[in-house]
Each structure stands twice: as C-alpha cells, then as structure tokens.
Design a protein around this nucleic acid. Structure first.
Lengths: 143, 143
DNA sequence: CAGTATCCTTGCGGATACTG
DNA sequence: CAGTATCCGCAAGGATACTG
C-alpha cells in the first residue's frame, strides 16, 4: 500500500497529539462540527469547484456539479456562507444575478484538504475493494 | 484571520487540481464516500484515539470517548474495519477479549488529517462565531 | 435566474433490554 | 466483556411545483 511521503508512526502520533491539545477538550466537538458542515454531501465539492474556477454564478456551480438539486445547492451555499468559507454577492438585478467565491478562510480549508485528496487518490483501490462488502451491514434493523 | 503556513492562491489551486486529476472523474464520489465513512459521528474520534493509544480493547475505547453508545461504537469499528482503516483481533476467549488497532492505512489517514485539525484549532474562533447563527436555517421545512 | 415551499423517503444515531 | 436485537425520533437530502 503506497503511502506517499512516509512519516514514522511516532511522528504521526506526536503531531496528532499536538493538534488535539491545541483544541481544548471542549472543542473536541468542533471537529465533528467542521465535518458535519464541511462534510455534508456537497460542501466540499463546492469548495473545490470554487477554488478551481474562482468566482461563479449559482447556475455555473450547478452545471459543474452534476447531481445537486437546486435545494441542496442553495442550502449548502448558505451554510458555507454562514461558516465564513464562501462569500456571496447579490447584484440585485433582474433577472437575478448572484455569484459566489471562496473567502480567505475557504481557501485555507481547501489547502488543508489537499493532502487528504492526494492520499485518497493514491489509495483509491484500497477503498474500492472495501466497498464491495457494503451490503452486509452489521446493525441488523434490516427488517 | 490567521492562516498558518501561508500558500499563495495559485499554488493552492494548482495543487488542488493536481489532486483531483489524480482522482478520475468516476472517483469523484470517492471523496464523498471517504467523508461519509470517516465523517460519521465517531469514526474520526476513534481513529485519533487508536492513533494515540495504540492497541485498545472495546471497553477502553468506549471509556476514552464519552458519549458513544455501545451500538454506535461497534457499528463504527466495523465500518472502519471494512474500510481497512482498523484491524480487529478477537482472542476467542471467555469472557470475550477483542482489541483494535490502526492499520497502516488508518495511520495514513490520521497523518493526512493533521493539517486540517491544526487549521481548525487556529481558526476555532471564526467557527464559533459562525455557530451562533445556526438556529435560523434556510430550508424552511420548519413547520 | 436564483431561489422558496412542500412532501416524502432514507438511514443515522440514541435508548434499552438481552446473550454467550 | 463484547456484542445483538428492537424500537424510535429526527434531520439530511431528493423530487416537484411555484415565484419575483
């Protein structure tokens, strides 16, 4: 299994601890929160799209993202705006014209996600294999 | 807004594109999948706990994670096992004794999350501010 | 064009009780 | 101890129709 820039385990653990001490105990929930915001179905895709394309109109984003419903696109964009990751500009024209762009914070997030995506790409096959077993879920509830 | 090791935008975009070209178009869903697996309520916490503590028994993990139900802990561990991030060893003793450990892949993931957590810690206040507005959700459905 | 307003399905995740 | 087996509420997210 290819692991790009190899770190030794001690180093990983040390850094991980450092990162988690920087977050106070109370802030542990912050991680979860970041991931329930950034991690909803579309947000990270939007961040990436805006990162690559720069400033885009609503419809442009929709076009580049295949499969988003209007509802979810708006919802996600508003979330991202509230989280301060995206800025929204409404020109108050008619017909409407609104466009979106990554904020500084959003660009920061994108930058921090890069190592993760690189790694996902490297290990894509590993994940694909795992995916095969998905039907048999443990928690019955399978009425 | 503090952005730790500053990269310029062009660099971010270039790298981000590189990462996403490495992922084939079809693999775009992989990102989502990684995040819906790793991003469920407890998985990343478990990965972190195991990363720091090494090899742990079921009950040990539960103790360190305040708030997990037995059900969700088992469920999450099994997910992680299927995803190849965690290895499970059952000693087939009675009373039961099972322990869990990060796999190489799991350690890889942990390592890739570090920049993100560092960044979250740095920008914690920004997020906390954003959090205040949460009650007013856009998508009505608020019957 | 850029949204709202509804309706509806799915599945996560908590609580509780039970078992080998 | 390390799980299963159920029951349940709630929120995410899709489909569709409508509006300024």
């Amino acid at each position: 299994m290819i692991l790009g820039g190899r770190m030794d385990n001690e180093e990983i653990i040390r850094q991980s601890q450092a990162a988690c001490e920087a977050l106070s105990a109370e802030d542990d929930g912050l991680k979860r929160e970041v991931l329930t915001h950034a991690g909803n179905r579309w947000s990270l895709g939007i961040v990436h799209t805006l990162g690559v394309a720069g400033r885009l109109r609503h419809a442009e984003i929709a076009r580049r993202m295949r499969g988003v419903s209007q509802r979810m696109l708006t919802r996600s964009l508003r979330q991202l705006e509230r989280d301060g990751l995206v800025t929204r500009q409404d020109y108050n024209e008619v017909p409407p014209r609104v466009d979106y762009e990554l904020s500084e914070l959003g660009r920061g997030l994108l930058a921090r996600m890069i190592p993760l995506w690189m790694w996902v790409a490297e290990n894509a096959d590993g994940f694909r294999d795992a995916r095969i077993l998905y039907d048999s879920d443990i928690s019955s509830d399978t009425k």
